[in-house]
């Protein structure tokens, strides 16, 4: 369980997050929605240790993460897939995956997990020796997620995975995520602009506006709230 409690983040004079709290359950997808500049990405970056909150605490399975470095947060079992996919183009598909699996330590564990994630994303299996620069947008997103899974995380933070993808690719991706959260009892936090598709697979949702939480509920009741949808989600 990932708990965010009263987190505030400031970039210079700009308040990016103000007193944000949320709880993400194991085996469920929690989606964070909101317009551009609402603070969604900042919230993910705070969870993975890329930015340090001024106030508030973030706990994972009861352990406090706030104040820890990114490298320590990864080792605590949190994998962050940054926006814009973040695959390393100069490395091959397999090297990207190996990089993700390095924190597992043993070579046999790395081999096993790479075989596993390639099973999950067949297009990557065929492209394993190609440079990531040659992949399509959808393949890159698969690689970024596969690489995060290669560290055998307990929580997966996804920043706008559907950005720039064709609707059919997005749909397939969402199906994989739903499957993952169920079968691998993974805590998934999904930041999305595409609120409609995110709400369709998430169990709970948090809506941010100008750095504050304006709504937090189950995904289905948020989706049913027309007023909120019009105001903050644009559909």
């Amino acid at each position: 369980m990932l708990e965010v409690e009263g987190v505030s983040v400031q970039y210079g004079a700009v308040r990016a997050l103000e007193d944000v709290s949320l709880t993400a359950e194991v085996g469920a997808i929690t989606t964070i929605l909101g317009a551009n500049g609402a603070g969604k990405t900042t919230l993910l970056r705070a969870m993975s240790g890329l930015v340090h909150p001024r106030r508030g605490t973030i706990r994972f399975d009861g352990r406090v993460l706030t104040g820890r470095s990114v490298e320590q947060v990864v080792r605590a079992g949190i994998a962050h897939v940054p926006e814009g996919r973040g695959v390393i183009e100069e490395l091959t598909v397999e090297e990207n995956l190996r990089l993700g699996s390095l924190i597992l330590g043993s070579r046999s564990a790395q081999k096993a997990v790479i075989a596993e994630v390639l099973e999950l994303f067949p297009p990557l299996r065929d492209a394993r020796n190609r440079y990531a620069s040659s992949l399509s947008g959808g393949e890159r997103q698969m690689l970024a997620i596969a690489r995060a899974l290669a560290s055998r995380p307990k929580a997966l933070l996804l920043d706008e995975p559907s950005l720039g993808l064709a609707p059919i690719v997005t749909a397939r991706l969402m199906a994989v995520l739903r499957e993952l959260s169920r079968s691998a009892s993974l805590t998934i936090i999904l930041v999305e602009q595409n609120a409609r598709s995110a709400l369709s697979i998430a169990q709970s949702a948090v809506v941010l506006n100008l750095g504050r939480v304006v709504a937090a509920d189950t995904a289905s009741s948020l989706a049913a709230d027309t007023n909120l949808r019009h105001h903050y989600l644009g559909f």
């Binding site: 990114v70 990864v74 940054p82 390393i88 100069e90 490395l91 390095l102 560290s151």
Partner: peptide, 16 residues
């Protein structure tokens, strides 16, 4: 190589 090409991504994958 990862740290040289993409330092932030490398950190997110646990590279010190």
């Amino acid at each position: 190589r990862a740290a040289a090409f993409a330092p932030e991504t490398a950190r997110l994958l646990g590279v010190r």
